[in-house]
Design a protein around this nucleic acid. Sequence first.
DNA 1: TATGAATGAGAGTTCATTCAT
DNA 2: GATGAATGAACTCTCATTCAT
Lengths: 204, 204, 204, 204
Amino acid sequence: MRTNVRSEAETLEGRILAAAARLFGRDGFHGTGMRRIAAEAGVSIGALYHYFSSKEEVFLAALRAEYELWLSEARRLWEAGSPARDVLREVVELHFASLAQGEERGLLVGRAWHGEVPGLRKALLELRDRYAQAVAQLLAQGMERGEIRRAHPLLTAYALLGLIESVTARAVGEDRVAKEVRREGPREVAELAWRALRPEEDRG
Amino acid sequence: MRTNVRSEAETLEGRILAAAARLFGRDGFHGTGMRRIAAEAGVSIGALYHYFSSKEEVFLAALRAEYELWLSEARRLWEAGSPARDVLREVVELHFASLAQGEERGLLVGRAWHGEVPGLRKALLELRDRYAQAVAQLLAQGMERGEIRRAHPLLTAYALLGLIESVTARAVGEDRVAKEVRREGPREVAELAWRALRPEEDRG
Amino acid sequence: MRTNVRSEAETLEGRILAAAARLFGRDGFHGTGMRRIAAEAGVSIGALYHYFSSKEEVFLAALRAEYELWLSEARRLWEAGSPARDVLREVVELHFASLAQGEERGLLVGRAWHGEVPGLRKALLELRDRYAQAVAQLLAQGMERGEIRRAHPLLTAYALLGLIESVTARAVGEDRVAKEVRREGPREVAELAWRALRPEEDRG
Amino acid sequence: MRTNVRSEAETLEGRILAAAARLFGRDGFHGTGMRRIAAEAGVSIGALYHYFSSKEEVFLAALRAEYELWLSEARRLWEAGSPARDVLREVVELHFASLAQGEERGLLVGRAWHGEVPGLRKALLELRDRYAQAVAQLLAQGMERGEIRRAHPLLTAYALLGLIESVTARAVGEDRVAKEVRREGPREVAELAWRALRPEEDRG
DNA sequence: TATGAATGAGAGTTCATTCAT
DNA sequence: GATGAATGAACTCTCATTCAT
């Protein structure tokens, strides 16, 4: 991770990906032009095409990085041996935190999934499946430990992601509801998720 | 409702909206051109602009129709006096059913929410809020009846929608997982939703 | 003329032509749509096409009416037996007066001449030539009376029209110069025209 | 000037402007499409938009070039110290010359002034005012030298331009009158202008 | 390697005109 | 006669991508 962070700040490729994640997250795939990415990254268009063969490649790479960031965070929490409930809460908080400071980069993953990138359906499916599989593994692990009730792991992972993404998407903006969602969201969402997943005999 | 269906088949405006919902649902806003909508509806471009002043208007109208369809169904179920749990299951089934026959019209709402239509952010927000408010009212009603635990209604409505949309989006396609999700999805999702919402003392 | 005024106010054709003159004068040929003309005249598009076979026909008819209005005024003055100099002054004043009350109908003729109506070159040329010929006749008459110096009558007529039109076009608007031109224009333009045309021996 | 001419022939921007002046002059703003300009300049549409951000920008740039060409010529003549009457004659000849060889580029300025470009009214006004101001300065200079009678300089400049433009516009084409105007125009127009402007005591 | 000028297919939209009622 | 829904060619403009330098 540290290597990653340094490379993002220092290599051209890293700067491009950081800019792309920011812009794609905020304005979506079609709302973001290659020129703008290049400008935001302080790079020429030529350089952009030197590192990525197409706009879709840039999008995929930025998306992949985002998924991996979240995945590694979730895994880290899990390996810390925290109880499933705490992991859930922290993952939820992580998503909300990604929206801080006017950054809407946290919307990137949700956008991509419900999104509309012409030739990328298959690639996006694989990417999200890979992430969901990882989450599903964590869930399965929790099931074996008896911390989480038995259910279809992959399907449950998709459900969790969607639940979080829909609420975080509502947390953007300065209207009254958005502010309320930012304040109450993490707790409420974590509670919903936990109740949906806790084993039968558990209470509260 | 039946009248609506017939008019959709018979008036130009109805044919346009039906075609738009199909195409926007399958290919998204940017992936769908006005020319294609016109062709799919068997109508000239001029006719399109006779009924709608812009592509965004067409999109909004199609989306509005979709929301209202779902809303009326949910309300109908509720007014039938069914217990909250049954309503949840039927609503979930309704979403899954909207994907039947290769139609991806059911993805329209999710796409719109996570989507990227430049000048429509505010309108989309209002539309989804209006729907979510309605769902929230149903939930609040359930809370008063003691069938659903106390929680932030609007936020919970967003969570529910996201949960359902993420899974249904995975149910599209002919790969093994998609088929599995289509088969197991309705039951699993309804179960997740119910557990997330049921009152404390309830068990299974 | 009185008949004309009454018909303009009372027949559909008259209302269409009045609306067309107003709109074409203000917004030009391409800036004025058939729909707008119909709306302004309080007439359906169908009715519009009942009276005129095309947009160009409407334009020509409106232009013709305008030319005839001016022509008849000039002729009236002349026949009143006024000296050439007074006729000039009154014609100039007539042009300026046509811009009063925010109406820019008086620009129509100038617009048409320097304008850009695709298939109308020949017709516009004939129309302006016909008007210019009439003016030229008046000038020729003046030459014979010795009130105006000998010169190429048609060419001089064109020069006169252009001189007036360019200045009146600058008289539109609310900026300082426009107001000044509206105030000083009639006198200055009449003076310029008179000096350009007066016989050699004349002074002041 | 020579440099300018060469660059017009050699750079893309120059070729675009030359083509635009030719086409706008002949067919007007609305009668000239971007595709046609591109084709006439031997350039892609993309290149057009690389150099100019809109059709209106192209129009303004072409018009500006035309004004500056004329302005520099007039100034050159004046600075040569010629008497006012000769300057007038040469300026008039310059306008007529701009129509030679079937080129109607010389109509561009008149078209623009009486024209109908929606968002350009203000810019066109400023442009013509700037040119007229320069002409007015020349006139004022002449007044001080006693070569031209005292009159409103700006208004007189507008009058002069209109006078010339109306006649040159009639000089286009192959009909009998046009040929006659081409032959007699320069002399007649210069004479009209001179008589309109000469000081009181002057004779012929 | 790095640049950005140049490309051109395709987008949304307008509007004069037609014609079934 | 009168209507206005319907047509579709043509418009301006965008933007991912290429390639000569």
